[in-house]
Each structure stands twice: as structure tokens, then as C-alpha cells.
Design a protein around this nucleic acid. Structure first.
Lengths: 163, 163
DNA sequence: TATGCAAATGTTATAATGTTGCAAATTTTC
DNA sequence: GAAAATTTGCAACATTATAACATTTGCATA
């Protein structure tokens, strides 16, 4: 799966997931971190689509799996995955999405479609630079940046015009 | 209060609040919207500092006021204030801060100090333009943009070096 | 292969945040 | 002053997240 995958377009999503899991295994190995079965399963669930998933959605699927998990299990797995850059939390939705730029440390920019719910993660150096400049102008030292753009993806723009 | 107020520096905050309330009254009049006592009180509370306040913090102060309010009262007031551009919600903190650029419709950029908790709202056209370009490159139609930068304000950078 | 430590997980309970739905009161409009 | 629309009160509930502590597991090393 290319880093610039476009969730709005049809693609072989099984391959998408498989690649994400393979990447995750490699990254965890490099980090000397343990991608345990629970963590891997949570990552897999998060990746089941390009729509962000809530912690309790994950929890519900784990329950279907027969895994009698409680909230802390899921939150801990998500924390781990976030720390290793494998998933992102979408603050404006209280939910989580697989990172499509895994490995590189980054604060992505997220385009969130309010029509279909899909999220596209971008790396936008121009945006990062502009934010950095704005902070610097205030002598502010940025550590973590959240950029989430809600709107309509190409397909949903078209659908809306059909209404 | 100037639009470029810097919460990190000492300023006459009473004047800050008074101006915000006066602005709010003017704006609501222009919008034909009713700034009822509850709404005005909530706005005043949100403005008590430049640190964002949670809905339940507001609720607690209302209770001290003797106002026996329930959560929906606060959330409704906050919704109203947001709709008229008088407060902003900080998604990464689940809390609310007074808008220092009231009147102009906008998506601000927020510099959130993890040391002191103060939030500075900026209008950064270069950032807005860069985000807009990035979205356009994906044929994405932006409607609402959240930009929240967590880090250290000038004063807290200095304090940290003293540690 | 024992054993002991650190990391990970399980478990229970609870905190924090946000919403729904409906009835009562208030304000506006005619 | 009566009808309509807006706002508020209120109770219940839904969702999201964390605290605290017990238990198990993986793994290095004696």
C-alpha cells in the first residue's frame, strides 16, 4: 500500500491491512516493543476500514471474538499503538484510525469526510511550516500539533449534488 | 481588548472580560439572537481566565451561584455561544475558551501551553491558506478546521529551564 | 530448569464528558 | 390577549476514559 493511499477510492483493502500489520511488526521489532496478540488484533480492527473507530467499537468486536476484555485493555492497546506511531487519535471524533505513514514520526493532517466518514491522512510540509512559523512568531515552542479538517470528500461532494 | 491579546502577559483581565461581554451583546443584537442571563453568565465564566474550562467546571460554578443547573443547560449555552462565534471548543482538551476574535467568522489556531494551561488564539492566514491548498489538492471541500498546537509558552519555557 | 524481575493483562469500580426527550416557562409575534 | 416559537428545567441515560490493585506472562540469568 502506498503511503499516499486514497481511502476515497476503491482499493484492495485486505492488502492494505496486511501491509499495515507487516509494517507494524517490523516497526515494533525495531523499537524492541512487543506487538502482543491483543495489540495486533486491535490494530487489525482499527484498520478494518479507513473510518475511525471508537474504543468501545473495538471493545465490542473483541467481545464477539470471545475475548472478554474491559475498557482498559483497549485503551492500553491504543496507547501502545499510538506511542509507536501505528494509529492516530482523531480528537474531534474521540476515535482512532490506522496511521498510513507508520514509522516516520509525525503529526499528520487529517481530512475527515462528514459524508462517508473516511479519513485521509496527509503529510503537508507547507502546513507544518506555516504552523511552526506562527508559533515561533509568538515565541511558542510546539510539541504536538492536531490538524483535523472536516468536510466532504470528492465522492460525497458528488453524492450531495444528486440530492 | 486588542484582538492580539497575549494571555501569557499580565493584563487587565477584568477589562478583558468586560469587553468580551460588551462585544457579545453587540454581536447577538446584530444576529437577532438572545443573550439570555444564563448564556451571558456562562460566557462570563468561560472568560474568567485564558485557560479553557470544561462544561462541568462551568456547571460547578453555576451551582455555587445557586443556579440549580443540569448539564444540558451548560451544553446548550455553550452551543449557542459557539454558534455565534463567542467561544471555541478545544477538541484536544474537551473544553471551552473565550473567542478573542469575536464577530469575524473563522477557524482559529490555538497555542495551548501545557505548563500554565493558557491558550492563545491566532488568526494565521498563511496556515489557513496552506491547509486549504492541501485539501484542494485532494479535491476535498473543507468546512471546519481544527488546529491545536500543544507546547510551552514563553514564560513556561523559562520556568522549565529553572528546574 | 528454577527464579526473579519487568512488562503486560485482567478485573472492578468509578470518573468525566455529552445527549435525548419531554414538560414547563418565557418571550415574541400577530 | 392568544398562538407560535424559543428557551429552560429536569430526569434519565449514553459514551468515553481512567484509577487502583491483583494476577499472569515473557524473558534474562543464575
Amino acid at each position: 500500500m502506498a503511503a499516499s493511499a486514497i481511502p476515497y477510492r476503491p482499493h484492495n483493502h485486505d492488502a492494505c491491512v496486511a501491509q499495515a500489520l507487516a509494517d507494524a511488526r517490523a516497526i515494533c521489532q525495531r523499537h524492541n516493543a512487543r506487538l502482543t496478540p491483543t495489540r495486533e488484533r486491535v490494530l487489525e480492527l482499527i484498520w478494518q476500514s479507513h473510518k475511525p473507530l471508537g474504543a468501545y467499537d473495538v471493545l465490542a468486536v473483541l467481545a464477539e471474538d470471545g475475548h472478554n476484555a474491559a475498557p482498559p485493555t483497549v485503551y492500553r492497546a491504543l496507547d501502545f499503538l499510538q506511542q509507536h506511531g501505528l494509529v492516530h487519535r482523531i480528537a474531534s471524533l474521540n476515535s482512532f484510525v490506522g496511521c498510513t505513514h507508520a514509522g516516520k514520526s509525525h503529526n499528520g493532517l487529517f481530512l475527515i469526510c462528514r459524508g462517508c466518514g473516511n479519513v485521509l491522512e496527509l503529510t503537508a510540509p507547507a502546513v507544518a511550516q506555516a504552523v511552526s512559523d506562527a508559533a515561533q512568531a509568538q515565541t511558542f515552542e510546539p510539541e504536538d500539533t492536531v490538524i483535523e479538517v472536516a468536510g466532504l470528500c470528492p465522492r460525497c461532494q458528488a453524492d450531495h449534488r444528486d440530492d
